[in-house]
């Protein structure tokens, strides 16, 4: 009995003393933080992907709470829904932003772009691009070793074994921009997702002169300027032997797609054209955007 009593007193007493020490320390060294930071953090996705240009979700929440307006602050993963709840928590104006999605601007598949050498070494695009211009004659195109796949936290990218190119899974892509930063060739671009995910873009980054680019890759942009001519909305500009479609000006009329002699302009998620509907190939092209070689 006595033993049990002593044990209870000793253990209980130690517990009480330590608890009060912890309590006092917590009280004394308490750092005041705006409680709204926690609240905002709770509505954020918590992926810590860095897509908002802050190191993590908490830093972004802090930035939201501290800033005057939410202009320029966007969680690309959560999109407008999350930003709306953040805005309502903080009692600020909602700034709507168009949803974006990552697109790969290279169609240098194994079939389109013949190999000129064989690479041996670390399977990393970064290492390969430090070493040389790539295993094809195009020194701007995809190296196909998947640095983008490695950095994607959302499992939205995979390398298509047949083409050797990464494929973006639109449903999973959160437009965090990790792939844009990881690609040593800067092939990814965050573009406006567009109505019903319909988009048109130039799938090439080759800045060589037309003849050289064409020699290296059959679907390279040769900067012929035909797309620029047919575009009625002034959305297309040609710079450094390369066409670029401004997604804010583009009205998705698809004239440029038809005009492009090398099929380097891609349309995604459009219904098949009437004329080409019978052709199986074109349908695949429109659906998956993989097979842009055949007309």
């Amino acid at each position: 009995m006595n033993v049990i009593l002593i044990a209870v007193i000793v253990l209980g007493g130690t517990g009480i003393i330590l608890a009060s020490v912890i309590f006092l320390t917590a009280k004394k060294f308490r750092v005041y933080e705006d409680p709204r930071i926690d609240e905002v953090q709770n509505v954020l996705p918590g992926a810590n992907c860095g897509g908002c240009a802050y190191p993590g979700c908490r830093n972004f929440a802090e930035a939201c709470v501290k800033s005057e307006s939410l202009d320029g602050l966007l969680c690309p993963v959560g999109g407008n829904d999350v930003m709306k709840s953040v805005a309502s928590l903080l009692g600020r104006e909602v700034v709507e932003a168009d949803p974006l999605v990552a697109v790969l601007r290279c169609n240098g598949t194994c079939a389109n772009r013949p190999k000129t050498s064989r690479y041996e070494g670390v399977s990393s695009c970064m290492a390969a691009s430090l070493l040389y211009g790539g295993d094809t004659a195009c020194t701007y195109g995809c190296l196909g070793m998947g640095d983008c796949v490695t950095v994607c936290q959302f499992d939205a990218l995979y390398i298509d074994k047949e083409t050797g190119l990464p494929v973006v899974d639109e449903a999973k892509c959160t437009s965090c921009g990790a792939c844009v930063r990881a690609c040593p060739r800067h092939l990814f671009e965050l573009r406006k997702k567009g109505p019903k995910s319909r988009r048109i873009f130039v799938s090439c980054m080759n800045k060589d002169k037309g003849a050289l680019a064409r020699k290296a890759c059959s679907v390279a942009c040769i900067a012929c300027g035909k797309c620029e001519q047919v575009c009625t909305f002034d959305a297309i500009s040609i710079k450094d032997n390369l066409a670029y479609i401004d997604y804010n000006a583009c009205r998705l009329c698809r004239k440029c797609v038809e005009a492009c002699p090398t099929n380097s302009i891609w349309e995604l998620n459009f219904p098949p054209r009437k004329k080409a509907a019978e052709q199986e190939v074109s349908a695949t092209k429109a659906e998956t955007g993989k097979d842009a070689t055949t007309v």
Binding site: S117, L131, Y132, G133, D208, L212
Partner: peptide, 10 residues
């Protein structure tokens, strides 16, 4: 013109 140098870039 541009030619390939030893690094494989033009």
């Amino acid at each position: 013109d541009e030619v390939y140098d030893a690094s494989g870039y033009r």
